[in-house]
């Protein structure tokens, strides 16, 4: 900031700085002395000071009014890390898909017998009643996967599952394990959405899933 010109008269910046300090209520006694000296030579200073004070009050009113909306803007909730319960629920959703696929294949697929032979069908609708009670779940799943491999709807299965629980058997020999078996399935869908965030009310916000490979590795175990 420049101070004085060669004739000892404060330059424009210093004049404005002194006025600015008065407006902000932080002018020192020395500042006032200086200002009065300028005012004695330049009476227009007092008018400028009055106008500048008026402008400042109006600007404060403008800013206060323009930014008052800020008081209504609260911080959003921090995203909550997924709990074990959430993860199990997520698995359950996809597990539901797997079960549904198995049942659909068992009912609507080719006629399946426990021995794996296809029955000859004279049914004109192509649907033959199958007694599912004769099948164990594992057998049905195995058949569904086999069928999926053939028609391309089950391209593979991940080698590593996700262990949920392991207990020693009461017999003392062996363990009972509960795990997620990741089966890769292929489907054609009309819409592909995921829900990475929620709105202010906590409702999931759907967004299109980016197209292309989602994982860098391929299934390590083909059926």
């Amino acid at each position: 900031m420049s101070t004085h010109d060669t004739q000892g008269i404060p330059t424009g910046d210093e004049r404005e700085l002194l006025m600015s300090r008065v407006i902000d209520g932080r002018a020192t006694a020395n500042d006032w002395l200086h200002l009065e000296a300028i005012g004695a030579r330049e009476p227009g200073l007092w008018r400028d000071l009055a106008l500048a004070q008026r402008d400042q009050r109006q600007l404060e009113a403008f800013v206060a009014r323009s930014t008052e909306i800020a008081d209504a803007v609260e911080l959003p909730e921090a995203p909550r890390p997924l709990s074990l319960q959430d993860r199990v629920r997520a698995f359950a959703v996809w597990g539901g898909w797997a079960v549904a696929a198995v049942v659909a294949l068992a009912v609507l697929g080719p006629n399946i017998t426990p021995g794996g032979n296809q029955q000859s069908s004279g049914n004109t609708a192509g649907i033959v009643p199958v007694d599912l009670s004769n099948f164990r779940g594992e057998e049905l799943l195995s058949k569904a996967l086999e069928r999926g491999r053939e028609d391309g709807t089950v391209p593979g299965e991940l080698a590593d599952g996700y262990l949920i629980r392991a207990n020693a058997l009461s017999t003392g020999q062996g363990y009972e394990v509960m795990y997620v078996r990741p089966i890769v399935v292929k489907r054609r869908v009309n819409n592909l959405l995921h829900f990475p965030s929620v709105d202010e009310a906590g409702n999931p916000l759907p967004q299109p899933v980016p197209l292309g490979p989602a994982f860098t590795s391929v299934p390590r175990r083909a059926l």
Binding site: M1, D5, T11, R15, G44, L45, W46, R47, L51
Partner: peptide, 14 residues
């Protein structure tokens, strides 16, 4: 409105 100020030199940029 007329300015009440008598012209003075301008300071340097801050």
């Amino acid at each position: 409105e007329p300015s009440g100020r008598i012209s003075h030199g301008e300071g340097s940029n801050a």
